[in-house]
Design a protein around this nucleic acid. Sequence first.
RNA 1: GCCCUCGUAGCUCAGGGGAUAGAGCGUCGGUUUCCUAAACCGCAGGCCGCAGGUUCGAAUCCUGCCGAGGGCACCA
Length: 560
Amino acid sequence: MRDYLSSQIIAALESMGGAPDAFEVDFQQTNNPDHGDLATNAALQLARHFKKSPRAIADELAAKIDLDPSRISAVEVAGPGFLNFRFAAAHLSTALRGMLDAGPSFGRVDPTGKTAIVEFVSANPTGPLTVGHGRNAVLGDTIATLLESQGFTVTREYYFNDAGRQMRVLGESVRAQYQALVDPSHGRKTIEAAGGERLDVPESFPEDGYQGDYILEIADALKERSGDALLAGDDVDVFKNAAQERILEDIAFTLERMGIRMDSFFNERSVYESNAVWDIVEELRRKDLAYDKDGAVWFRTTAFGKDQDTVLVKSSGEPTYRLPDIAYHIDKLSRGFDRIVDVFGADHIATFPDVLSGVQAMGHSTDGIQVVIYQFVTLVRGGEPVKMSTRKATYVTLDDLMDEVGEDVTRFFFLMRSPNTHLEFDLDLAKEASEKNPVFYLQYAHARIASILRKAEEVGFSLSDDAPLELLVHDAEENLIKEMMRYPAVLARAAESFEPHRLANYLREVAVAFTQFYGNCRIIGESPELASARMLLARAAQGVLAGGLGLLGISAPDKM
RNA sequence: GCCCUCGUAGCUCAGGGGAUAGAGCGUCGGUUUCCUAAACCGCAGGCCGCAGGUUCGAAUCCUGCCGAGGGCACCA
């Protein structure tokens, strides 16, 4: 429709002497029904060019423009010089027919052959996923789904590191618990935990060890499997590997529960095994972008606008996270994706530019790499924020959260806010909300439609594809159709800006429009023609709700 | 001190440079002989943090300030 109007306006402008070369007609959705369905500010923008008042230009345009009355029923000049267009009834029924014909693919783009990789979660396997990881996981998964809706083939990838200091401490934590389990003579000590609390732990437990119960469970499993045979060696790896394996399994299980399945797990180790990291250091040295100082290798980030250089390789010989990260991104580039999306928490905000600089320094364009940063989640219970830390025993796991409020609510709450605002997750509200919660509101609207269609068929009305859609002229019917007509654009915008909340908010508006239709227009009791037309309208709304909820990973029940 | 995000109704938040700034929750009042009341309708509630600037037009873009959160390690 916009393309059509745009071409007609350009044609009218030609007869008025022509618009500037770069001129494009800009349309906006109106938010007041008095302003029609679509408005353009073209006359306002062209006032200077034509040296006339915006209203005069608008009047002239309105007079000269040639419009198909089956698509546009009226053009009005309003306000300072807006042109308001009103959709013809026939245009609405044509659009509704199109939605019904498209079925579940309405709003979606056919496969384009383009590919994307979305990297998300990427939590190191040191413990169960927490609420913070949850926002990452749901956001990343939904961004991937949205890209799929726009015709991309998407790879969901989890990047993890099992080599660093964290993992060593994890292994030592497990070993200490294991030693205490198999050897009763092993001593105890107390260490200070979060909030000054004192904790009783085995004597060999590391100062900054992991204190969760899962460490004990892993140690216990090792005892079951190997008895005290592991006491002899002094290798932590056996403990570390057991912990990692178990924790990754648990993580995959938690993700699965949220409807998330990763396509691949990329182990940081592989960029060491391929020697890629050391090649990068050499290359950067050659380009004078890396140098030695204080026994460490430094990356000249000042050449990329930073106020300090940063360390690539510690004096211990161990690289910092930056080096493998650079190698990993170069690896992703080499795999030929059209788009590369990284989903990071706000704590990475200062660090990913270094990684991108590194990729550029190696001679690659980073234009295809897009980084989505989301702000932190605060869990609120009883009006008080809940403190969280993976290492201390104070975190709330994602599984706990789902146990408490359910999978659908968990997903929706993570998705209903813009990624770049802090998310306050009110547990009391999410739970007690079985009445007021937007998730239930949407699901309820869907269930209600299913119920109406069931009931209508029971009493003898039938869904007929050739129902006379032109009978749908009630305001509530037209509003619902117009609302649904926006769906493809909303979806495209949500996908391109990586902002699933746009879809979540939009679905609510569809549900509101449907509910108004429901309140004003009945099916049972009307003439068979009108009833079947309304059934088709309801069916279309059901399709948009089910499709949208599906993209968000939320169920659309037929009964509640 | 520097960097990033945010500041909109009592609370949580939407708002792609446009016309009279919206929703949910909360408050108050109303609606069920009628396809799902987990619903609907209505009232009240706003210097869009402050001050400048750009523009025909700014909650939206720019600058500065104030406030909140996060980040500024040879941790990741």
